[in-house]
Computed example of a mutant assay.
Amino acid sequence: MEQPAHRRIAAEIADRIVSGELAPGDRIPSTRQIVADHGVAMATASKVIAALREQGLVQAVPGSGTVVSHGAGSAPATPDRERVVLAAVQIADAEGLPGLSMRRLAGSLGIPTMSLYRHVADKEELVLLMMDRVMAEHPPPLLVPAVHGWRACLEGLARLQWSMYRRHTWLAEAISFTRPMLAPHAMAHTEYMMWALDGHGLDPSTQFTAAVMVANYVRGTAVNLEGEAQAEQESGLSEAEWLESQQARLAAVLASGELPMIARFIASGDHSFDLDTLLEFGLQRLLDGLEPLLRQPGRTGASPVR
């Protein structure tokens, strides 16, 4: 994804400031020089200067033009892309995607915000790289359809994805199945499930749909994890503690007698209901429904590239 020209040029100048090539008090390239050096319009060159000024890297000095601000060159060298993505994942893990901004990320790395655009075009590309990094840490399981069966393979990958979402609660919100971002390691999960279903009489379109269906079920359940984590942080109560605090209100609602089935469930004493229970119950029913579509395996196809 190509980044806007003014961000790319501003990032180059920011790197020169951070490295010390342009010291405090030095003049930076003028708008006319930027136009000449980079072949951009004057409006784009003006945006470059404005972006650097917003970051506090430069300031206008009467009689001298735009110069490097004092103290602007004290930040460490610009990190590589891997460090940028890892830092972004760590922020999202701790604060969720709403807590992740380019300014916040740059602050954690100790660099000017514009320097980030040397590595990513915008936040959308940053999130894509974050997703792919997390997926790379969770490759498909070492289960083989010919040995373990298609169902065990799909179960194994679904549970792997669930553990991934539990560790990175922001991830489910970031993933879209209607406008998917093409992350190679995420696509490897889909490839694995299609491979597990191969040789059972399904055409490629049905294989793909079935694979996405299972992945979307896990992701759809996982979107609740971020909200639960945020609610626990804000209230200071775990899920069990919150439910305990609602007992009086629940008793008042059930006292009306209009919810006899729920009242019977509560009276049974078996209240072991959480997202893990919901996921496992639904996953088994989903695979039960898929099973009648599959005939006895013939060829299983070549193993996908791992």
Score class of each variant (00 low, 15 high):
98 P>R: 04
282 G>A: 08
88 A>F: 02
77 A>Y: 04
198 D>I: 00
141 P>Q: 07
104 R>L: 00
106 A>Y: 07
69 S>M: 10
146 A>L: 02
35 V>T: 03
94 A>H: 09
121 A>T: 04
88 A>C: 07
283 L>M: 14
32 R>F: 07
86 L>Q: 15
54 E>S: 11
160 L>G: 14
83 R>A: 15
86 L>N: 12
114 M>H: 01
121 A>N: 01
160 L>E: 13
226 E>P: 07
260 P>H: 11
305 V>M: 07
68 V>M: 12
202 L>V: 03
145 P>Q: 00
120 V>A: 01
210 A>Y: 06
84 V>G: 06
158 A>I: 11
202 L>P: 04
251 A>N: 10
263 A>I: 10
166 R>T: 05
274 D>W: 02
256 S>T: 15
270 D>S: 11
67 V>P: 06
60 A>H: 15
243 L>M: 13
55 Q>T: 15
75 A>K: 07
29 P>A: 08
179 R>I: 10
124 E>D: 15
185 H>M: 09
282 G>H: 08
172 A>K: 06
286 L>R: 05
254 L>C: 08
306 R>P: 05
60 A>R: 13
1 M>D: 02
214 V>N: 10
109 L>M: 12
1 M>N: 01
118 R>A: 11
189 H>A: 13
32 R>H: 12
285 R>E: 14
148 H>R: 07
128 L>V: 11
96 G>H: 10
3 Q>D: 01
10 A>Q: 00
150 W>Y: 13
182 L>P: 06
220 G>Y: 10
68 V>Q: 08
153 C>T: 10
190 T>Q: 13
145 P>D: 02
9 I>G: 00
193 M>N: 11
215 A>S: 14
170 W>G: 07
24 P>M: 13
87 A>Q: 13
242 W>P: 00
226 E>L: 14
51 A>I: 11
206 T>K: 07
20 G>A: 03
227 G>A: 12
236 G>I: 03
164 M>D: 05
88 A>I: 03
221 T>Q: 14
158 A>Y: 11
288 D>W: 09
302 A>I: 05
103 R>K: 13
245 S>F: 00
193 M>K: 04
248 A>T: 09
94 A>W: 03
130 M>N: 01
95 E>A: 12
131 M>T: 09
15 D>T: 02
265 F>I: 13
122 D>T: 01
182 L>M: 14
